[in-house]
């Protein structure tokens, strides 16, 4: 009995985790269904676009520019060990576009957007605003969840594109200002090297990560427990889940893209 109890606890935890995955998956399917069927709430959608897209630009830009700059320094130093300093533009480009751009933007969206969606919806749940919506013949999945998820699916790829460009610009600035690269050569190397598919895979990742971030915020918010503590737990849980899922999805998608 005592010997088996750790196993029992482990089994319980695994079952609980599987249950949560199942519920989150059903939630995601439900949300997608509501995106496709009317009524549509244009005002909510526009506000979500503004919140998730436009207002995230500063943090995305700052993250990308510093990362691009640091990447250029690292690649230059690493490349110098086997006389390959010249590859800086190419590796910065591919590293930003295929990997760091989408992942960093995804994580920033998880920090900024997932947390705020979860806290907002959880507060609405705790203060009975979700119940009030229902009594006013408005479906919370349609009014609260669908606009946010749709906005994230559409706008996060755009943010990723911006992040890619600014990241490359950060690398360009460091390389031309302090590593002695010629601006024109750096740009030509970047543009010639990148393929259409690199950019496309970046945007696909952005779409997936945006969807994950918004869905986790909505899911944890809607499932929130009671009271201020419930809101706190929902917010924390949503950011953890979104960050881990984004990194896991990144790994999976990268694997899939290479096997194509």
């Amino acid at each position: 009995m005592t010997l088996l109890s750790p196993l029992g606890a482990l089994g319980g935890a695994v079952l609980a985790a599987l249950g949560a995955v199942g519920r989150a998956t059903l939630f995601a399917l439900d949300a997608l269904g509501h995106i496709l069927r009317p009524p549509f709430y244009g005002r909510e959608f526009a506000l979500a676009l503004l919140q998730i897209g436009w207002l995230s630009l500063p943090v995305v830009g700052l993250t990308a520019v510093f990362t691009g700059g640091a990447l250029a320094l690292q690649i230059y130093a690493g490349g110098a060990r086997f006389n390959a300093e010249a590859v800086v533009p190419q590796i910065v480009a591919i590293g930003m576009v295929r990997e760091l751009g989408p992942v960093l933007v995804g994580l920033m969206i998880a920090a900024r957007v997932t947390s705020s969606i979860a806290a907002e919806i959880a507060t609405m749940k705790v203060t009975e605003q979700i119940d009030a919506l229902v009594t006013l013949s408005t479906h919370p999945m349609k009014y609260l969840v669908a606009p946010r998820v749709l906005a994230a699916l559409l706008v996060v790829p755009g943010l990723v594109a911006v992040g890619d460009v600014i990241g490359i610009a950060g690398g360009y600035a460091v390389a031309t200002l302090s590593l002695g690269f010629t601006p024109a050569v750096y740009l030509r190397n970047t543009v010639d090297f990148l393929e259409m598919w690199d950019v496309l895979s970046s945007l696909i990742k952005g779409c997936a990560f945006g969807g994950i971030a918004a869905l986790m915020g909505c899911y944890f918010g809607m499932m929130s427990g009671r009271g201020a503590q419930g809101v706190g737990r929902a917010t924390k849980g949503s950011v953890e889940a979104a960050a881990v899922l984004i990194l896991a999805a990144n790994f999976l998608l990268t694997g899939v893209f290479f096997s194509l």
């Binding site: 203060t127 009030a132 009594t135």
Partner: peptide, 19 residues
Amino acid sequence: RDAFLARFGMLFQGAALFD
């Protein structure tokens, strides 16, 4: 559900206004 809820109005104990 929609037809049912359309017949009702509810004042919640905590008002539950959309802030």
